[in-house]
Design a protein around this nucleic acid. Structure first.
Length: 292
DNA sequence: CTTCTTGTTACTGA
DNA sequence: ATCAGTAACAAGAA
């Protein structure tokens, strides 16, 4: 569920708080959440962060890279120093001993899968209720190889209207489905695909190659605009998404949703009830009157 | 109890 | 080879 804007908000936070810090420990609470040899990151300094689409990279001094994908329910939460409450990360495993009423503000919690500890005592928690997300340790070449099928990032300067138009011209699939295809452009998920199509007044079922050049220009424009605005708003914390800012706060862009998760509610332009259909197995929201 | 949800990949069939 | 559709993954909400 976290899409480009949410991942970028997380990246900006980590860039501000983790650069120069040294990893002193990694605790793996769910084996499938981490791939690689955890020993290779110990005593390594964090040098920079980067992002393509929904994938976040943390680069280490030894040139290895930690690649994060939050998938649907992943969270990255940073806590400076735990001076009060339960000491973070020291937690006795609750496996087999579920706490009935766990304090949500206490970390690690039920959905904590990984805990990174830094040499100054601060910690980074990777939470993921549904365990679809992951962190993988890669060499530079392995990272390039794993991302070779990713299209251009929506906020890349190379993501031009010309590139966009070319990419949507070579398929007949519904435009909504094409927008979600990470091999064409990286970073769009269900929220922004639905809302960008609404702003562009394009029906999500329109065959991609039937989109006029003029409409393609509009869609390209709104995709960039909506992503940029959401980043400024701290991303979207929706009803069923687990996204939160690394400091624990919520995003604000969900208050700007145009059609996403608004089935049955009036269109913000013409008051017609927003319709919900399924495209490629995904919930799709649109105004039947505004989006032709 | 069943059904639905979501991002991505693996698989299946055209 | 290429394209499109769908099951699978996991956990929880309805």
């Amino acid at each position: 569920m976290p899409e480009l804007p949410e991942v970028e908000v997380v990246r900006l936070f980590l860039d501000n708080h983790l650069i120069g810090k040294t990893i002193s420990n990694l605790e793996i609470l769910n084996k499938k959440s981490f791939t690689g040899d955890p020993k290779k990151i110990i005593n390594q300094k964090i040098t920079k962060t980067s992002r393509i689409g929904k994938q976040l990279s943390i680069h280490l001094k030894n040139n290895l890279i930690l690649l994060f994908h939050l998938k649907m329910t992943g969270q990255i939460i940073y806590s400076p120093l735990f001076s009060r409450g339960m000491p973070a990360g020291q937690g006795v495993s609750t496996f087999g001993h579920p706490t009935p009423k766990e304090d949500k503000s206490t970390l690690p919690n039920k959905s904590t899968r990984l805990v990174f500890t830094f040499s100054n005592g601060s910690k980074l928690f990777f939470n993921d209720q549904r365990k679809f997300g992951w962190v993988k340790l890669f060499t530079s070449n392995e990272l390039d190889d794993s991302q070779k099928n990713l299209g251009l990032d929506i906020l890349s300067s190379k993501f031009t209207s010309k590139y966009f138009y070319q990419q949507i011209q070579n398929t007949t699939r519904p435009i909504k489905v094409v927008l979600l295809d990470q091999s064409k452009f990286a970073g769009i998920g269900n929220i922004y695909a639905n809302d960008a199509l609404f702003l562009s007044k394009i029906n999500p079922q329109t065959p991609s190659n039937k989109i006029s050049f003029k409409k393609a220009l509009l869609l390209h424009h709104f995709l960039i605009q909506i992503m940029t605005e959401s980043i400024k708003a701290g991303g979207s914390t929706a009803k069923d998404n687990k996204y939160i800012h690394p400091d624990g706060s919520s995003g604000q862009h969900q208050f700007n949703f145009q059609v996403y998760q608004r089935a049955g509610e009036p269109c913000l332009v013409c008051q017609t009830p927003i319709k919900r259909i399924t495209l490629a197995g995904r919930g799709t929201f649109y105004c039947p009157k505004c989006q032709k």
